[in-house]
């Protein structure tokens, strides 16, 4: 092998090596960004009443939270969240907060309350379905725990992810829930 041939081979290898290292570095950097993105828990933004939130199926605009007297004697007091709900899908939906249902989560003293009743204000009856492009006023009703003292509460709204073509059949699917927004508020009517 002559000297000239060796130099050209070395140069050839150097070029390929540099390219390989570059590609590897790009792949590793991309991977690290993804890991970092998943590792750091993202705190959902704090919102104020009147701000709309996209929950995937619907857009909810919380309007006010109030403390109401019990329905009947001997029952606990109730927390009422007035909200405006708009269906964002192309069909009439009966599961407005996704499936399985993830209605807004109300936390008092660090413990979430059981799921609320969803009342359609127009009829004063449970909300059975929501039609696209017809926004409705609703009330979410929670029963407070018996030992609860009125004070600030925290509300968490969950968004369900929509995928137009899933990896198995290429069909559209609703997948994971993620917190989309948080609201800290003192109910009106609390002493």
């Amino acid at each position: 092998m002559t000297g000239k041939q060796r130099t050209s081979l070395l140069q050839h290898l150097k070029g390929r090596l540099a390219a390989s290292v570059g590609v590897m570095a790009a792949i590793l950097f991309g991977l690290w960004l993804k890991v970092e993105d998943a590792r750091v828990p993202k705190d959902p933004p704090q919102i104020a009443p009147g701000q709309p939130i996209d929950l995937g199926w619907v857009e909810i605009t919380p309007l006010s939270l109030s403390l109401a007297p019990p329905e009947r004697e001997g029952k606990p007091k109730r927390l009422l969240l007035q909200a405006r709900l708009l269906n964002l899908t192309g069909d009439t939906e009966s599961s407005v907060f996704g499936f399985p249902p993830h209605p807004p989560e109300l936390t008092v003293g660090g413990a979430p309350l059981p799921e609320p009743d969803i009342i359609l204000d127009r009829d004063g009856e449970p909300l059975a379905q929501l039609h696209p492009r017809l926004a409705e006023r609703i009330t979410l009703v929670w029963q407070t725990p018996p030992d609860w003292r009125p004070g600030p509460v925290s509300l968490t709204f969950h968004r369900q992810t929509f995928k137009l073509r899933d990896n198995l059949y290429g069909k559209s699917s609703w997948l994971l829930f993620q917190p989309a927004a948080r609201m800290s508020i003192t109910p009106a009517g609390a002493p």
Binding site: G90, D91, T92, A128, Q129, H131, P132
Partner: peptide, 18 residues
């Protein structure tokens, strides 16, 4: 029955009139 609206959206029978 469903109503396919002019925009292509599907409206189910109203359960408020069930």
């Amino acid at each position: 029955a469903t109503w396919r609206g002019a925009s292509g959206r599907d409206y189910a029978l109203s359960r408020r009139a069930q």
